[in-house]
Design a protein around this nucleic acid. Structure first.
Lengths: 317, 317
DNA sequence: TAGTGCATTTTGCGCAAATGAAAAGCAATA
DNA sequence: TATTGCTTTTCATTTGCGCAAAATGCACTA
């Protein structure tokens, strides 16, 4: 057993979803924290940071080593093998089949190809997977608040953000929550938290959004809003923002409307301006900027939605 | 098969959790909608209202008939058999074992007897149930946002509301969200929605909180805040309030500190005052009242928490 | 026309052993 | 002292089948 396991792992044939996911997040973390060639990587530290044991972290590091991102230290341990600033995580790391399926379901739902109410038995043949897999996927959707169990049979996707209604409501909600976060009496800008965010934004601006795919920008964007709310010190405000990000991620998955580089660039600058104001401690100005930022994003989104006839397109703020 | 099923059902030995739950909700619905003796009950209408098929509704109605709450019409169908205003639903309808277990888990968690992070394997022997049941329970907790899956193994309960920190944050969050709901441009007081709420409050006042247990009051209280937010027409605001209610329900489950009847009565009056203002369309005054109401509830809760040495007691607003 | 009662179909849950993955423990080392 | 590499232990997922329960369809009636 042991021999066989080592063998398959060495061939790179097996890697659990968690391991792949960790590898990607580790890569992003290293890059955004400014780690350069030769930087030593500590497995226990990563395990702590991501709330898992060393086992999956070790597997993820091995994965990264096979991809040439890491290399062994002269004596023991691992170090960064190359410059990370131009790496596209998703290109380097294959998505696990289950992750792929998750995104596919999300996309089909966002496009309306998948009905709002579904049964497990309906999904099994559709995606040609076992019930266990279906349950696992639905459970994950449920954990992100994107789907709910119906009282009797079946599951129900939450109202998506398509349509003027939900779209407007979403922005109204975000405006309320995120501005409240800035106004929170306990608000405290944490440089250790915000610096990587800022760095990521600057990286986007540097290559004019050429190497920045929609996925990447979404992650950066979501991270910005979530961490900003996080500074409020109010976990409920933070959770609410995260929840909204999850919802918008589903819309994003529809894959319509690639966001124009111009728009990304502008959002980026607005984010940086907000960060400046926050770090300078000028909360009123921060709030004004944020409010304006959200309003513009909402307008942009609605414009796109109005232009294309199809149901689509939440703008990313 | 068929004969056996009818037999067991006739003996009242089997009743699925859904059926029992429906029976209780139907009872509450009839009572709060002011149905008196002789009122005819329509199964399809109830099925629509609760989003299930007629099957479990029929079973629930049969259950209520066996309890003497309903009786057959002269020709066909069912009617209310007695005055419903003094009925205590929980006393009449036995909770299903799984419901009982759910509440027990919640209570033990709220009291800190159950650790914040648990594994399924740990829970199975503890409650002497199969893995399937454990999963089902955890899934339900997850659906209410009370527990989350950890990346690797195990589940993690969300931070409870005990401790000054979380308690303050919770009220800050509610203040933000609920007041925003009242200020929402699309706010629209829906009498059909608010009248049953008002009636329930008046019932509480009428018998000075004598027959109103903590459970009952919690339900009414939660319903008030949720429906009020619901009038905003913004589903995200509504969801946020519901989520807070779920959290507070867990605190409630600890079962410390029976809320004094005086306090319930006062909250009740404050709720009614808010309803008055809302229905009169005076949103500014509504908001002022609501803000004051939440502030007082927060103070009351903190006072109790400070007084009793134990970790306990979220006040109900 | 909507509601009832009954029959049929569909759906999801319960159960238990085997397998794979993550957590935890431990000695060796820089 | 913290980290690494390895081993052991614990944990969760997978899989398939039988059954209970919910959804659905249909004839009949007020």
């Amino acid at each position: 057993m042991d021999a066989r396991r080592q063998e398959t792992q060495a061939r790179g044939e097996t890697a659990s979803p968690l391991q792949i996911d960790l590898a990607r997040r580790i890569l992003e973390r290293m890059r955004d924290s400014g780690a350069g060639e030769g930087t030593r990587i500590s497995a226990p530290e990563l395990a702590r940071a991501f709330g898992v044991s060393r086992s999956p972290v070790s597997a993820a590091l091995e994965l990264l080593m096979r991809q040439g991102v890491l290399k062994p230290m002269p004596t023991r341990g691992l170090q960064v093998a190359r410059d990370l600033s131009d790496i596209v995580p998703h290109a380097l790391l294959p998505r696990s089949p289950i992750e792929e399926l998750y995104r596919r379901m999300m996309r089909e739902r966002a496009r309306g190809e998948l009905p709002q109410e579904v049964s497990e038995a309906e999904l099994m043949p559709r995606y040609d997977v076992s019930r266990g897999v279906v349950r696992k996927l639905l459970l994950r959707f449920a954990a992100e608040g994107l789907v709910q169990r119906l009282p009797g049979h079946g599951w129900r996707f939450v109202d998506t953000l398509v349509g003027e209604e939900a779209f407007r409501e979403s922005y109204e909600f975000r405006m309320v929550v995120e501005c409240a976060a800035l106004r929170s009496p306990n608000f405290k800008a944490n440089p250790a938290q915000l610096t990587p965010i800022r760095r990521a934004h600057e990286r986007v601006l540097k290559d004019n959004g050429r190497h920045v795919g929609g996925d990447e920008w979404f992650r950066i964007n979501a991270g910005f809003h979530e961490n900003l709310a996080g500074c409020s010190g109010n976990r409920f405000l933070t959770d609410a923002v995260r929840q909204q990000n999850n919802l918008r991620r589903m819309q994003e998955a529809a894959g319509y409307d690639e966001l124009p580089a111009k728009r990304i660039e502008q959002s980026c600058r607005e984010h940086l301006a907000i960060l400046d104001a926050v770090e300078a401690g000028d909360m009123e100005w921060s709030e004004a900027l944020l409010r304006q930022h959200l309003r513009q994003a909402a307008q942009f989104g609605q414009a796109v939605e109005g232009a294309s006839g199809k149901r689509s397109s939440t703008a990313r703020a």
